[in-house]
Design a protein around this nucleic acid. Structure first.
Lengths: 216, 216, 216, 216
DNA sequence: AATGAATGAGACTTCATTCAT
DNA sequence: CATGAATGAAGTCTCATTCAT
């Protein structure tokens, strides 16, 4: 094989992969990954079943793709409409409200991906590998910066713990309502989206400004 | 309908059902419901496949059983080791810490059931029906009482919203770490269980004592 | 066992059997025998599955019952509303029209039994045994009598053949439309029931009055 | 969609289908369709169960195939040995005898298909759809032509009714004996096939030449 | 290499029949 | 004896994966 062909093949290979990723994205909008068959995916991508197995060893090999999609969307969002301009002068609470509003708008648009990601980060953590941890770590670093920025308002002594908990809360609080809407624990809520977003922002705020407890 | 025979058969019938419920319980400890086949369940219960279908119309009919199990465990727990003695004199924060410790210890033991319940309250809300909502409503009522008890400490104006959010948070915050442990958003946490429990108690506390915000 | 009990038991046994026969009759009105399960039959008869198997060795043992039912109905019909008063003076054609009208009215009422009987006389001729042949033979004898009565009008030389064919036609011509109505060969017919009955009577008549062919 | 590959696959695909159709044909010679399992069919065709489901959505999807088989055989028959040369000069009766002989010889060879077709045109008229009606309609048109050809001999006033009844009779009279032989109403007949065929031809003839009745 | 036909294990479900109570 | 719970073979169908063309 002459070397001149490779780039073409690589390009074609990449293209094939992209088709599959797009097809998966489309499918995940309407059904769970477990309910998507390879044949279905192949058809949606305009490929044959055999071609799919040429790119992916087996069905499980698509799971990392879900994360890839998630990350792509998140990065695009953060670089675009999700870019947060924090105004230190307005204080921590305002910053958190802004952050929660932004997080909520991401969930609103890409909830189906967040759902799939969440499910498989639990169901098959082995297949997700470092991607997930890397993303969370990045989130933790952002949290660190935020805590530094409002160091005087934050009353938590242990900054490491605070950054971890902040990340944990940020990835936990809105999700339940954001991706499962009328099911799960969210059914107890009758408040509007706006009220809910404000409430979780206040929850984060409350955690950060509550001084450590000295007993128990 | 004659008496004298029925009781025996009913007992046998009940026993079969119990065997199946126990078998399901065992299986849920180690794998997801979707991955448990009827044949597997039958074998674990020491029954034939046909016997399963005499008690349960189809596989879906087991989903309510998961909730039943959950509720049973929860009630037994609440009546036993989970009974909370709230000492109003110690204040809201102490009460929340106690409540979270108790909730955590339930999750620690019955997390697999909570997981299955959570998954199916989302996946098949139609099959879960009112059970789930009834449980949440009961939780909301308990929240109401707690808020009343510490009415002077709570700064939230809208008590209805506060009770709802309290319930939502109580059913959301510990779950992620409690049932998925090393996976999901919880991987970011390096803190100990005790620290985590304290942190979420503080989070709840922070939410309740944070006064309403007057702008936006 | 004292002898005094027997009659009671026999009576009870008979009663059980009757219940089952009635239940089967009900079921055959709405579905095919193959689609009636033993459990269904037992329930409809107000009996247990075990009780059914005490009276009938297996499901196939019900097939003769279908014939029994058929014969009962036919005999009751012939003794009642189906009793034909043939007026020799009116001629063969009038007699046939009357006979066909009567046959049609039986089909109209008991078509579902005729259908089941027909199906099983083909599907499991071994289980039907002599019942079916006996019935047909009786019909043939009636045909014989009719041919004798109108001996001068009938032009068929071979009276044995004529009686057989008459029976065959009588059990064939109306059935198709009578029990399958809008399906099968009957879909080609747009004529009314009355016209149809008249047409098959004329068909029978035409056969009987057509002289033998002397060639080929 | 590229050419060069498809033909092969299409041929393979077609071949598989043909194998299944042939296997079905073989099975229908010896047992009812309902008693043929998919696994059995697959084995007879030298295929796996999955391959069957690639060609046919479900078992019901084979029912139209039965009709397809029937029609194929009928058309091949009509174009070959079943081609009827009607000699108008010999009259209606001779024509009918010829037609019945031909029909009988078809039944003799392909009775098992006719049986299956008849059963399913009743059992699942929804799956048979227009095929059946189309065939009957074609038969009715042939009947029309025949009646025209022998217009002077036919005494039935209503030609539309006569054509319909002729079709009905042609599809009813021989069938019973033709496809169920020693079972059903045919058991009453001790006459030979030749005599039987002559008798039904005379029956058809008798119907057509019997003038309308003017009373009742 | 690409295609999609074929494979075959395994899932759910039904129901005639048996048998413990 | 009656009851109806239990059995288990058999049927339909799905789909991840393999492989002939």
């Amino acid at each position: 094989m002459s070397q001149g062909v490779r780039p073409t093949q690589q390009a074609r290979s990449r293209e094939t992969r992209d088709k599959l990723v797009r097809a998966l994205d489309e499918k995940l909008r309407v059904k769970a990954f477990a309910d998507v068959s390879i044949a279905e995916l192949a058809e949606a991508a305009g490929l044959s079943v055999g071609a799919v197995y040429r790119r992916f060893e087996n069905k499980d090999a698509f799971i990392p793709v879900i994360f890839e999609l998630y990350r792509e969307r998140l990065e695009a969002f953060m670089a675009g409409e999700g870019r947060i301009e924090i105004e230190p002068a307005n204080g921590l609470r305002a910053a958190l409200h802004t952050a929660c509003r932004v997080a909520w708008s991401f969930l609103d648009k890409h909830g189906y991906l967040v759902r799939a990601t969440h499910i498989y980060s639990r169901l098959r953590p082995d297949l997700v590998g470092d991607d997930w941890e890397a993303m969370l770590d990045q989130a933790r670093q952002s949290a660190d910066q935020l805590l530094d920025l409002f160091g005087d308002e934050v009353k938590r002594q242990d900054r490491v713990e605070a950054a971890q908990m902040f990340t944990y809360l940020m990835n936990t609080l809105p999700i339940e309502r954001g991706i499962y809407r009328e099911e799960g624990a969210a059914v107890v809520l009758t408040i509007s989206d706006e009220q809910f977003v404000a409430a979780i922002a206040d929850t984060l705020y409350g955690y950060l400004v509550t001084p450590d407890r000295h007993d128990d």
